[in-house]
Simulated scan of single mutants.
Amino acid sequence: MASDDTHIAIEDRKRHPTLWFDDGNIILTTNCTLFCVHRGLLSMNSPVFADMLSMPQPDRFEDSFEVHPVVEISDNDTDFTHLMCFFYDHRYYHGGTETTFEKISGLLRMSTKYQMDDLRNEIISHLSLAYPSTLEQYVKAVDPSTQLSLFPPFHGQHFAIATLASETNASVLLPTALWRSMCMTSRDILDGVADSEGTKHMLSQKDAHLCILKKHRVYKEQMRAEAFLASLSLKECARRNETGKIQGTSPCSEMALSEVVRHISGIEGVMTDSHDIFTKMSAFDVWRPFVCDTRRERTVSELSSVRMGCWDALPRLFKLPSWDRLRR
């Protein structure tokens, strides 16, 4: 197949094997494929096509091929083929069922360009299964046991989704896509990664720079949160002397603070560069089984509040509008 910047004469381009209809009345052509389709169907599916095809033919069509007017399409051949397939069979894509990233990304680009709002919204809702706007849905989405009806996962997909969301102005996906990108290693963020097919996925230079800066800020916040959770003072679990007065630090606090120091100092091994405070707090996960029920329940409650606060601030972290504005 020709690359997007290769020009092929119209008479040398290949007819699409299934999207060439003998009773079609207009020919659309990408840089390498011809589609003989129906004007009415195009207009019915897209207001952009409706406006385009309502113009007088002599002013609009500069070429003809086999007595049909020809319209040159500048879109990527693969993306446009997905769109034509959807025009003729809306079962070609159905939100909530597994598809391919190539199909879903192509259709999102095309539905955005050709103002097909229903299809666009359906695709964004589909992608929101893995890149949601609520913390509760996020925790479910990143759970390895969750079976998402999305597309086969691939290395670098967070970068690909962030790029796609920026390209199509699907802003509601961006905070989570950038967050999941930021949770990749610094090397991956800077250099990009290749999937199993050898396709390399990278963030834009602006987003990569932003993720690296915010990664260090978030790591500091995580350390503060770990220390805060460990230093919670609870009289219910404090060690007391015979007079009933608090005597020293409670065993729970001693263990918690010890594990935080151990974690920060790296005694238990090199700290990972990829971390997600919405799913894991390294030191707390170690000491939580060994503290009393009162301390554990209070800490879990405080941790929930910390995470919710972080989630609410997530769009602002990436210089985006609030969640409410993004959802609208």
Rank of each mutant, 00 (worst) to 15 (best):
T6R: 10
R187G: 07
R180C: 03
D207V: 05
M271F: 00
I189S: 01
K200V: 11
I277P: 04
G96L: 15
S54Y: 07
H201V: 01
K14T: 15
I124R: 06
H82M: 05
T30F: 02
A2M: 11
L108D: 08
D22S: 14
D276W: 01
N25S: 03
F87Y: 11
A50F: 11
D5N: 14
A225T: 14
L19R: 07
Q57I: 08
N76K: 09
S54D: 11
E167T: 12
T134Q: 13
P58E: 11
E259A: 05
R187Y: 01
L326W: 13
D5M: 15
G309L: 10
R217M: 08
L178T: 06
K245M: 13
F86E: 04
S149Q: 15
E221M: 05
L257V: 10
D51K: 15
F49V: 03
K215Y: 11
P58L: 13
S304C: 13
F290P: 06
E98T: 14
I27V: 15
G96H: 13
M281W: 08
L232F: 06
T243V: 12
K280A: 13
R316A: 12
S253E: 15
H68C: 14
Q57L: 09
S46C: 08
F159Y: 00
L232H: 09
D324C: 03
C310Y: 14
L203S: 06
H275S: 04
R217G: 05
P58V: 12
R39Y: 06
E302K: 10
F101I: 00
L320M: 09
F87S: 10
V142S: 13
A177M: 07
G95W: 08
D143F: 02
T272F: 02
I277N: 04
D293E: 09
L28N: 03
I277E: 03
Y131R: 00
Q247T: 10
F65H: 15
M308A: 05
F86V: 10
I212N: 02
I161L: 09
F65R: 04
T81N: 11
D79W: 08
P17E: 04
H155I: 12
N25K: 02
G40D: 15
S265L: 10
E197F: 03
L210Q: 10
I124N: 05
D143L: 04
Q57V: 09
R217A: 11
D23G: 08
R316W: 06
